[in-house]
Write a protein that binds this DNA or RNA. Structure first.
Length: 193
DNA sequence: CACCTGATTGCCT
DNA sequence: GGCAATCAGGTGA
């Protein structure tokens, strides 16, 4: 997968890019220990025009990475406790991004268990994904092409359909079906463990 | 500078 | 199903 393909994946409206990230991988290798998940759940956030977006009221120190080029990583602190990761998309300055809500452990599952201090439900939530992969606020603003956090647009391991539904955990613009979940075609569970 | 809210999680009843 | 944990960012005085 070339840099051009990578950028092609992220070009276009955030609503088109978000479902495209399903099946792609998010990877880190902190401390020389590789960890990787297959993305199974995402949510799209626009900039101006999306009341639920961190960029709705314009640029601030926190959301500055959202205004950078597509492929930039935006990490924010949630509820003072958790970290949540976003893939910045769209034209530079538009401030749209895709929240990585969940995935399926693919590489370094044992390391994820260590970081999560439990054996199940390792990556079935935005805060859990960051905890399992070791992503934190210091990584915000880095390029997903150069690391330390990588977006790998590999072909999905299996076939699946994409279901869209309202975003969760928000209080504004709750009606927009901008949450995308991968549903395996064979009926088996893609749910994260 | 004080107040409030949150793109969550996990444990308790 | 309910709710505490825990604090930075954003808003308004």
């Amino acid at each position: 997968m070339t840099t051009r393909d990578f950028l092609g994946l992220l070009s276009g409206d955030v609503l088109a890019v978000a479902p495209r990230l399903l099946g792609c991988r998010l990877a880190t290798a902190f401390d020389g220990e590789p960890t990787e998940i297959v993305i199974t759940e995402v949510e799209a956030y626009g900039g101006v025009g999306d009341p639920a977006s961190h960029a709705y009221r314009g640029r601030t120190p926190r959301n500055a990475p959202m205004y950078e080029a597509a492929g930039t990583l935006y990490v924010y602190r949630s509820y003072g406790i958790h970290w949540c990761a976003n893939v910045v998309t769209g034209p530079e300055g538009e401030a749209s991004a895709v929240l990585i809500r969940g995935g399926q452990p693919a590489v370094g599952t044992d390391r994820m268990r260590d970081r999560r201090r439990r054996d199940d439900h390792l990556t079935d939530g935005p805060g859990k994904v960051c905890a399992a992969l070791g992503i934190s606020g210091g990584d915000s603003g880095s390029s997903l092409l150069d690391g330390p956090v990588f977006l790998v647009p590999d072909a999905p391991a299996g076939s699946f359909s994409i279901e869209s539904m309202p975003r969760i955990g928000i209080s504004r613009a709750v009606d927009r079906p901008w949450r995308f979940v991968a549903r395996p075609s064979d009926g088996s569970s893609l749910a994260s463990t």
